[in-house]
């Protein structure tokens, strides 16, 4: 039996697992990283968190440099940065694909949740509730196990690598949340919108497309962006089912350096990547929420 599920193995038992990685040439860069990071953040809060991180790193690195010959923590992190960046690129890619699929499915499911047909409505509701109340990790395992590694369509074989299955696994909860947001947004519009469109001769589908959906966009945008940030922060889950991303690369880096003192700075560094990516999104979400709240 083909078992696609790869439980995380100890990377030390997998020599040759690491791609060839040349350490960065310049070691003078930490300052550069600092300024680059700063330009991403606009609020005091972000700067405060970042400063705390840099201070703790600096302190660790100073202690190390004082102790002797080994490379300092910052230098080590810098050395692994290209690999971690590549890993984070996978996280971003997985999050964007899952979000796209989940959004499209969720919008459709949400519309079905307000269908005039009672059976369709109930089925859509059940599907939504099922996926909304399932742990994301369990959904991921199910997708990895249940989706075949390749699918035959009209004689051509379409491969289904693990990362694609993971994308589908993560898109399911996104779909469920979107479906609920969509239903809520549709039902929050006054019934007069339906009635006036009806009395002007619009069909139900036309009313949905031209009158209702355009008005839901404004209401959906903040929770949608929030959901994206939550999804991005959940992407490290895919490392548990054997898909490469920043966490699995971080573990690999730690294994190859074999330095206990690097553990905490490394994971802090990984946190930093997520923070820098997600913090501006939540800031923007708050701004949009405030703006819409004032307007309507």
């Amino acid at each position: 039996m083909y078992l696609p599920l790869k439980l995380p193995q100890n990377p030390e038992q997998r020599p040759g697992y690491m791609p060839v990685l040349l350490p960065m040439k310049s070691h003078a860069a930490p300052v550069g990283v600092g300024t680059m990071v700063q330009s991403f953040l606009s609020t005091k809060m972000g700067l405060f968190v970042l400063a705390a991180f840099l201070i703790s790193l600096g302190a660790a690195s100073y202690a190390q440099a004082a102790s002797g010959a080994q490379l300092g923590t910052i230098a080590l992190l810098w050395k692994w940065t290209p690999l971690l960046a590549k890993g984070f690129g996978f996280n971003v890619l997985i999050s964007i694909l899952s979000m796209a699929i989940g959004t499209v499915l969720g919008v459709c499911l949400g519309i079905l949740q307000v269908s005039p047909n009672g059976i369709i409505r109930r089925v859509a509701w059940l599907v939504t509730q099922f996926f909304r109340n399932s742990p994301w990790l369990v959904l991921l395992f199910y997708c990895i196990l249940l989706i075949p590694f390749e699918i035959e369509v009209f004689g051509t074989t379409i491969p289904f690598p693990g990362w694609l299955k993971a994308v589908i696994g993560l898109s399911l909860p996104v779909m469920a949340y979107m479906s609920e947001y969509m239903r809520g947004a549709i039902q929050s519009l006054p019934s007069g919108q339906w009635e006036s469109a009806d009395s002007l001769g619009f069909s139900r589908g036309q009313t949905m497309r031209m009158v209702i959906l355009p008005q839901t966009v404004k209401r959906l945008l903040p929770p949608w962006m929030n959901l994206y940030a939550v999804l991005t922060m959940a992407t490290p889950l895919v490392s548990i089912v054997g898909v490469d991303e920043i966490m699995s690369f971080a573990r690999a880096a730690l294994a190859s350096e074999n330095r206990v003192d690097l553990l905490i700075p490394m994971y802090l560094y990984v946190l930093c990547w997520f923070f820098i990516y997600c913090f501006p999104i939540s800031g923007l979400t708050r701004r949009l929420e405030n703006r819409f709240a004032v307007k309507s």
């Binding site: 006054p190 007069g192 919108q193 009635e195 006036s196 469109a197 009395s199 009158v211 355009p214 008005q215």
Partner: peptide, 13 residues
Amino acid sequence: VGMVFQQYNLFPH
């Protein structure tokens, strides 16, 4: 038959 409502019900967008 055209109808006008108490709450106008214009399309706000």
